[in-house]
Design a protein around this nucleic acid. Structure first.
Lengths: 336, 336
DNA sequence: GCTGGTCGTCGAAGCGCTTCGACAGGAAGG
DNA sequence: CCTTCCTGTCGAAGCGCTTCGACGACCAGC
């Protein structure tokens, strides 16, 4: 009495009284099969609890039905957004009958080479791509289908997705300007993020400044660390040096709560004295007190879109080089 | 001129002038190979940039060298800890030459069955296991090697790892009692977490209460939601109803910052009026103002330990049924 | 009544790897 | 000197699947 070895396609074929290849064709739909046979095969599949062996399938078809998700997982990242993103990648990939291999960026280019050469995965999804990312040239050379989240400096021959951060920054400035604020300021990411040349921080700043200029509004920008004390001192200095500032944009999820705390400590009421707009996920904005007017970082959309693009590439469909996701401003209690 | 098809083991064998099987044995070390031959093979491997085809290897050896990491990715979870954990799992798995397949819990038992039956993975790592998790009985039946993070009610035949939350709760109570506090309170997870029967919340509470009793100190417990306003009202009520409470333990990472804010608002100084101990990752404790005395949730250790146990199981080594990780208290500025 | 097409099915040839058994050639032991 | 036992290497048999070409059966058209 041997242990119930998991059923193989041969078992299914025998059970249904057809050839192995017929079962394969029923399952893949690559050749016409009569309704009767199809049904018998499907019944047998169910009866035996058959699941195709992934390795064998990958070997024969040269498709592993697995994509790699390369996450940074290093300091200064915005964890909740990253998680949302990862979730939506996994969920969307499953809809296309693919699984997700989780990789960290610290294996570096070698890691990419490894998974590509071993045919462990069919394609790559890279997050947190920097302006001059060392993996980008390799990626071009590798010829492995890939999608980047974020924009490197040279995106020739690549497929990139991201939130349109310039628009997000602009949206914030627009909103504040329309409400009559004449001096506004942006509190951005911690300075290391800017130094790393991560594109999104810079793009937000540019969009913000440009929109302010268009409205004839004076605009300041400050990097912003994530400890309460540092946030406090940044906010204090800002208000001290520019007492006219009445609108604040916070593009730093970890600091959002601290900014509100700092304003409370400094005796500034929100929104009576200062209006605050955040660029952050909705749940953070809603949880704050007062609830924050915010521009949503649509992590889920980005993930879904990235997977779709990658699937299209796997099927040799042409895809646009750049995809920018439109930000959406939700007005809550923190601006007036 | 065909595209440079990635090298196969046959290419390596030809290049080194040996049989395919010899190359395989050099790479796996499963049979003795003379130093000279070994070196020639290794040189050829490098020269051709050979990486074994994962599918073929899995098919022939019945080992995919991939483990599944099943994360909850649902509301109420503690994201940063989760991320740290995931990172350490990936890193540790790589040290054992394994990769990590990321799954979400919402595929449920079917997902487990699928990856196990398709031999996509060799073992499973499940996070956030509940007391009466529907996946647990399946897991027993499946016979797939697995390790659980967290303890279900019945852990017979399973392998479980977790922080010793009872000890963590006790450590906090000990610390406060030793400093002379006579009335202490625990602010825990949000009430949904308790309702879900997640073990760790309950175990912390029990350890806390028991230690307090041992010290002859009065101890209260309150669930704690994660919005600022709700935290504020819980803290206010607590202080109002029990003005003698001078020591607070916060076991809710998302609420830690809010608790501090609430105390500020209520005019209570930390640590002069109230001492605060948090159970949270070090970086959160350090970032707070004042820096918090805290018990570390050793996410990295848990991840590393879990992978080690799983690898041991894959090699048919016996492993302990339960592994409890010792918590560590770090004294900072928030207690006196 | 043929020819020519489809349609549905089958058999067999791999995919790239591991592993088993076989077997030279030496070393050791009597 | 012959046996016995290693050591190091090879060839071949799969692992479970996909896919290609072949081939009856059946239908249409002339």
């Amino acid at each position: 009495m041997s242990p119930p070895r998991t059923a193989t396609i041969a078992d299914v074929a025998k059970h249904a009284g057809v050839a192995v290849s017929t079962v394969s064709y029923v399952l893949s739909g690559k050749r016409a099969i009569s309704a009767g046979t199809r049904q018998r095969v499907l019944d047998s599949v169910r009866a035996l609890g058959y699941h195709p062996n992934a390795g064998a399938r990958a070997l024969a078809s040269k498709r592993a039905k697995v994509i790699a998700l390369v996450l940074p997982l290093r300091a200064g990242m915005n964890l909740p957004v990253l998680m949302q993103f990862a979730t939506s990648v996994v969920t969307t990939a499953r809809q296309y009958d693919h699984d997700v291999l989780l990789m960290t960026a610290d294996e570096g280019p070698d890691g990419l080479r490894r998974v590509a050469a071993s045919a462990l995965v069919d394609g790559l999804l890279l997050m947190d791509v920097e302006m001059h990312d060392p993996r980008v040239p390799l990626l071009r050379r590798l010829g492995e289908p890939s999608v980047l989240i974020g924009f490197p400096a040279d995106r020739e021959g690549l497929t990139c997705v991201d939130l349109d951060f310039a628009r997000a920054g602009a949206l914030c400035a627009d909103h504040l300007a329309e409400r009559g604020h004449r001096e506004i300021a942006l509190l951005g990411a911690s300075s290391v993020v800017y130094e790393r040349g991560t594109g999104f921080a810079e793009r937000t700043r540019a969009g913000f400044a440009e929109a302010a200029r268009r409205h004839g509004v004076s605009a300041l920008t400050r990097p912003c660390e994530e400890s309460f004390d540092e946030v406090c001192s940044v906010v204090r200095d800002l208000i001290h040096d520019h007492p006219g500032v009445s609108g604040l944009v916070v593009h730093n999820e970890a600091a959002v709560g601290h900014v509100l705390g700092a304003l409370r400590v400094l005796g500034k009421r929100v929104p009576e004295d200062v209006s605050v707009v955040a660029i952050c996920p909705d749940d953070v904005a809603e949880r704050a007190s007062p609830a924050l007017t915010s521009v949503l970082v649509p992590a889920e959309d980005v993930g879904r879109q990235a997977v779709r693009l990658l699937m299209a590439k796997l099927d040799d469909h042409p895809v646009p080089q750049s995809t920018l996701l439109e930000p959406r401003l939700t007005i809550r209690e923190s601006t007036k």
